[in-house]
């Protein structure tokens, strides 16, 4: 990370967004006292991450990218272990275990060993464990990575519901653009630098242009015709012609009346965070990661569905 300076407000869900390898996990590690910053300083819940490590550790809850549960223990044993590590008042432990397990709907599985749990259940249990000691700041490092779409949306239901039950600040990282929409503010990171910071709506408004995706028989000639007639740059993405234009909805009638193309379908999308990422970094998050994660198609569809 290089020269990052951010402030996260209490009660906020703050998203750290960027491709894999952008330095998100490194930042989380530094904030959670697992790594020391080589220079600069950071405070979590008012405590310095280098000089007041124990106070920081006491104030935070963590859900890691890789599972950190003991799969030989039951769900309840994992939470009890956590309570003892954090020195929680004994009389409160069993009540709190029930509270957090009910929150993630695992109370009926409390006596099952974790190695019988599915990936989504494990992640939910980790979220429950992260909340056990009532942390003031909850760090979520890629909380939904590697989970199927259904589980991802249920995890998000729990995370967004947290503010209703807990007075908590959430700091999370993700490389799923559609998930960043859930955050109250996001910072887009690329190559160790913050390239944009704001609410999802602010960032999208900054891009301004709509995205018009056109499915057409002869892409090359269509590209030429559109360039000539409307003086618009267009690009080809996954067999479709993509045009960025202000007022996308009024561009479509002109497209049909002013040029003669055999258009099969047209869709107009309000700028998505994908476009935001593209406009700030000059590359899509997919290209930035070199390889497309399997569920990128879903991200793509979700981005188009939002208008």
């Amino acid at each position: 990370m290089d020269g990052i300076s951010i402030e996260v407000n209490a009660g906020e869900t703050f998203g750290f967004l960027g491709p894999n390898g952008a330095g998100k996990s490194t930042s989380i590690k530094m904030l959670c006292t697992l790594a020391s910053p080589s220079s600069g300083s950071a405070k979590v819940a008012g405590y310095d991450v280098v000089n007041q490590r124990n106070m920081v550790r006491r104030s935070i809850g963590l859900v890691f990218q890789d599972p950190t549960l003991d799969s030989y223990l039951t769900a309840e044993q994992n939470l009890k272990f956590h309570a003892d590590l954090y020195g929680m008042k004994r009389s409160l432990v069993s009540e709190r275990i029930q509270e957090v397990l009910e929150m993630v709907q695992l109370w009926d599985r409390k006596d099952s060993k974790v190695n019988t749990f599915s990936g989504g259940m494990r992640r939910r249990l980790e979220i429950a464990r992260g909340l056990m000691h009532s942390p003031r700041v909850l760090f979520l490092d890629e909380p939904t990575v590697g989970l199927d779409p259904q589980t991802r949306s249920s995890i998000w239901k729990y995370i967004t519901g947290l503010h209703e039950n807990e007075d908590i600040t959430i700091f999370m990282t993700t490389h799923y653009m559609d998930e960043a929409e859930y955050c109250s503010r996001i910072a887009i990171v690329d190559k160790g630098k913050i390239v944009a910071l704001g609410t999802p709506d602010e960032l999208k408004a900054g891009v301004g242009k709509d995205r018009v995706t056109i499915e057409v028989d002869n892409i090359e000639s269509a590209q030429r015709v559109i360039g000539k007639r409307f003086s618009l740059e267009s690009s080809v993405s996954e067999g479709m012609l993509v045009v960025s234009v202000e007022g996308g909805a009024s561009f479509v009638p002109r497209l049909f009346s002013e040029v003669d193309l055999s258009i099969k379908s047209v869709s107009v999308a309000r700028p998505s965070l994908d476009d935001v990422f593209l406009s700030y970094t000059g590359t899509t998050i997919r290209e930035a990661e070199n390889q497309a994660p399997p569920d990128m198609m879903r991200t793509m569809m979700a981005a188009q569905a939002r208008r």
Partner: peptide
């Protein structure tokens, strides 16, 4: 690495929204 990050917290504030 040169970073300054503050995850602030103002639970003490009585008028916390």
């Amino acid at each position: 690495m040169n970073s300054k990050t503050v995850v602030s917290d103002s639970h003490e504030a009585p008028d916390d929204k």
